[in-house]
């Protein structure tokens, strides 16, 4: 080697590598996978449960690192992502790739050992889906990127359920569907008020490809579908009175927010700096957290024998 690497001006801290794992996404993954595991009819030994959730979280983090490696070029031009470790020059892309591959292998192998092979397979599939199907293929190709890519974020409760039961079930797929249907309105609201970010990065978000009025219409359509699904879940085995009450209140608020977004045009939105869109986005975070919280409460009540599950 004759050339001295010029990049070693900054030596990464542990926290920079941790940031590659998208800790905020990991929080959601940990919570939804935990709910999936605890809502299942079979109980899991606390040590096995803890280890399995940890390995699911590491797998999710690994896919985050691989996503940052692949998307470093567009992250650099978007305001929201420009401070991520790679575009900020704190970590080299190659390091993110190696970390992602190593943690993917470790997490899948260890989940196979701590829980079961089906859970490990589903974790591997989730990483593959997020990296190859979403990041490499769909994200830069179609405005439906978020719709199909949302599946990657929806798998954790299914994996949690499989950790406990070793098999798939309708209830697990209902939890999957809840996140899957929630993802598009959540991200499209973000795309509305992050304005030029996706335009600058040439990512064909709905706002860029079909325009803002179409995005507002899509948010309302997906929210209506989500409302039907979320309230319908209340009448299944994972639901109950607590869940149903929570779902009715949250979905009424969410639907009202989507309706308001649909009614507005860009002039209205610019007039109040996208207040309605920002509020809807914030509400969407509580929406998912509280729905899964309610499923967890129902599971706990069933565990204490206080409810039979379901409302019917």
């Amino acid at each position: 080697m004759t050339d001295v690497p010029h990049t070693q001006q900054y030596e990464a801290e542990l926290g920079d590598y941790f940031a590659l794992l998208k800790p905020r996404v990991m929080q959601l993954v940990v919570f939804t996978a935990l709910v999936g595991m605890l809502a299942a009819p079979q109980s899991v030994h606390p040590v096995i449960g803890f280890a399995s959730i940890l390995f699911i979280a590491i797998g999710a983090g690994a896919s985050g690192a691989l996503n940052m490696w692949w998307d470093a070029d567009i992250d650099a031009v978007m305001r929201r992502t420009a401070k991520r470790p790679i575009p900020a020059g704190k970590v080299e892309p190659r390091e993110a790739l190696y970390l992602g591959v190593a943690l993917s292998g470790l997490s899948v192998m260890m989940l196979g050992l701590s829980a079961n092979l089906l859970a490990a397979f589903m974790l591997a599939f989730t990483i593959f889906f997020y990296l190859v199907i979403y990041s490499m293929w769909l994200k830069r190709l179609t405005p439906q990127n978020i719709v199909i890519g949302g599946a990657a974020g929806a798998f954790p409760p299914v994996i949690g359920w499989i950790v406990a039961t070793g098999s798939f079930s309708v209830e697990a797929w209902l939890m999957f569907a809840l996140i899957f249907m929630w993802t598009p309105p959540h991200f499209w609201a973000l795309a509305l008020f992050m304005r030029s970010d996706y335009d600058d990065a040439d990512v064909p978000m709905l706002t860029v490809a079909h325009g803002r009025p179409a995005t507002r219409r899509h948010i309302l359509i997906y929210t209506v579908l989500l409302v039907v699904l979320a309230i319908g879940t209340g009448f299944t085995a994972v639901g109950g009175y607590v869940y149903l009450t929570t779902a009715v209140i949250l979905n009424a608020m969410f639907l009202l927010g989507a309706y308001r977004i649909w009614q507005r045009d860009e002039d209205d939105a610019e007039g109040d700096n996208y207040a309605v869109e920002r509020k809807f986005f914030r509400l969407s975070l509580y929406y998912l957290f509280l729905h899964f919280g309610a499923i967890l409460v129902e599971a706990t009540l069933r565990g204490w024998g206080l409810t039979g599950g379901g409302v019917s």
Binding site: E13, L14, V47, A51, L113
Partner: peptide, 20 residues
């Protein structure tokens, strides 16, 4: 800081494998 962090994580991993 980085080395201490990695060391602690490896130690935690060993303890976890032992418990599992």
């Amino acid at each position: 800081g980085r080395n201490t962090g990695v060391g602690l994580m490896l130690g935690g991993f060993v303890v976890l494998i032992l418990a599992l």
